[in-house]
Nucleic acid binder design. Structure first.
Lengths: 188, 188
DNA sequence: GGCAGATAGTGGTACGTCCGACTATAACGG
DNA sequence: CCGTTATAGTCGGACGTACCACTATCTGCC
């Protein structure tokens, strides 16, 4: 996971200065924000994968298990999993292939639609995801170092962005944020 | 790039409710923040790659070109590029292979160290990166929809996180932030 | 009823990332 | 000076993601 030794300076701040020096002052801030998100994701994913290694899981496979653990009867259509995790159907196929090979889920036909496939969490899968969730909570989520207000700012700004990108329908009835209503456009 | 139709509700907010229902209230916020970062990165990367498609570039290859365009003489050691972009050396090898095949960069030996290799931006590479930067500025960075205060919050929270993760040495001499000095620990 | 179009899932391919192993070279220490 | 250690870069493989094409099936409409 790129266990580099720390750099003397923040390369993103440096890039921002370059942007401003070129006269792209308007774009410099968002550029830094976008780059920061990219880099943070890389660090977080590497850390999650390292934590999940003892469980023989990757983060994306864990996400499938976690989703199933909250589903009715621990069962879900491939299609629905793909939609909720917001990944391409083939990614779900890939993940389920490996999870099934590990005995953590199994595929089941759907009686009402012979095209569709249900993914079902096995007992071993449930056990595994419970342990993995405990590990992730303790070793990742509780130690991100994000402060309360930072969490709030991150989730807020990013959920706005995701909604604008068509990720999900904007929360129509939220009167507490109605005052900043003018929906910022965003070409995705 | 997962051109899903929008979901009725935000799956991350849903996950957060699940977390809280299970009693993991402390971890729920950071979990939502981490997941939001993951998903935002996915959307941003897909969008960047789409914008760069006409240039026959991907975002990671663009990053290499952009880095070179700001370097002295448009020239940099592979090792240094790897360190500044914070990716594994093999990723740079991969990117440079493709950029070289496209005639946008070329490898040059280093006279003082026969192990090392310099990457040099070609004229075509410079032209390309200039066009690509214009496109990214106009179609991505200027249209993220992030507001001023959101950019500030994102960059601030994430640069703190990156610094804690050992990404780069914390900005030692910044008296304006000295008042919140107690360095939050973060196990990376 | 039957055909056109939509939908669920999969196989194959391309790309980016990482890791481990390896080569070649440099730097250090006795 | 020579052996040990560290460093720069590459190769091969594993994994996750996306896209395209394809099959099987369902749905809707005439």
């Amino acid at each position: 996971m790129a266990q580099h030794e720390p750099l003397p300076r923040d390369p993103i701040a440096e890039a921002r200065r370059n942007w401003e020096r070129e006269g792209w002052t308007e774009a410099a801030g968002p550029m830094a924000a976008v780059t920061s998100i990219m880099r943070a994701q890389q660090l977080l994913l590497a850390r999650a994968d390292r934590i999940l290694k003892p469980f023989h899981l990757t983060f994306s496979r864990y996400e499938v298990l976690a989703l199933l653990s909250f589903a009715r009867e621990h069962r879900m259509l491939m299609k629905k999993a793909s939609a909720l995790l917001q990944v391409h159907p083939t990614s779900i196929t890939n993940a389920v292939d490996r999870l099934e090979a590990a005995g953590l889920v199994r595929r089941e036909p759907v009686s009402t639609d012979r095209r569709a496939v249900n993914v079902v969490l096995t007992d071993r899968g449930l056990e595994t995801v419970e342990g993995a969730t405990r590990a992730l909570n303790e070793e990742l989520f509780l130690t991100t170092g994000f402060e309360e207000h930072e969490v709030k700012a991150l989730v807020g700004a990013l959920s706005g962005f995701r909604a604008r990108c068509g990720d999900f329908a904007p929360p129509a009835g939220r009167p507490d944020t109605a005052h900043e209503d003018p929906p910022r456009k965003s070409a995705c």
